[in-house]
Simulated scan of single mutants.
Amino acid sequence: MAHTSAAPAPLSSPAVTKLPIRAILPWAAFFGLLMLVLLYFVGAEQGATSLLSGAGVHEWVHDGRHLLGFPCH
């Protein structure tokens, strides 16, 4: 009885599609702007720089403000 071993099939690399920078740039700019607005509301929406009257925004982001190290009182 002869033992023969078959050579394993070569692994094919997955097809990699490259995204053009023109497809990524608008989304990166959108999410960057969204993060800046979020950072403003968490970090600075209070007191003299307040865009909205009342303390509603402050109360909604109060714990996040402390978690990120922003003082608020």
Rank of each mutant, 00 (worst) to 15 (best):
G69W: 06
A7G: 10
H62V: 01
A7L: 15
S13H: 07
A23V: 04
A6T: 10
G54R: 00
G47E: 07
A2E: 11
F31H: 08
W27F: 13
V16Y: 04
A7H: 11
W27I: 15
L36T: 11
V57A: 03
S53A: 09
W27R: 08
S5T: 12
C72Y: 06
V37E: 12
A7F: 13
A28G: 12
G43N: 03
E59T: 02
G54L: 00
H73W: 06
E59L: 02
L11T: 13
L38A: 10
R65D: 03
H62E: 13
Q46Y: 06
S50G: 08
V57E: 00
F41L: 05
A7N: 13
R65F: 01
S50Y: 03
K18Q: 15
A28T: 14
A23I: 01
V61A: 03
P71F: 01
V57Q: 00
P10C: 05
E45G: 00
A9C: 11
L39R: 14
G56H: 01
I21S: 14
F31P: 01
S12R: 14
G54I: 00
Y40N: 04
A29P: 03
L25I: 07
P71D: 09
S13L: 13
I24N: 01
S12T: 15
Y40I: 03
L36W: 07
P20G: 07
L68R: 02
A29L: 15
L25G: 02
S13W: 03
H66R: 12
T17I: 06
A2C: 13
K18D: 09
T4L: 12
H73C: 06
W27Q: 09
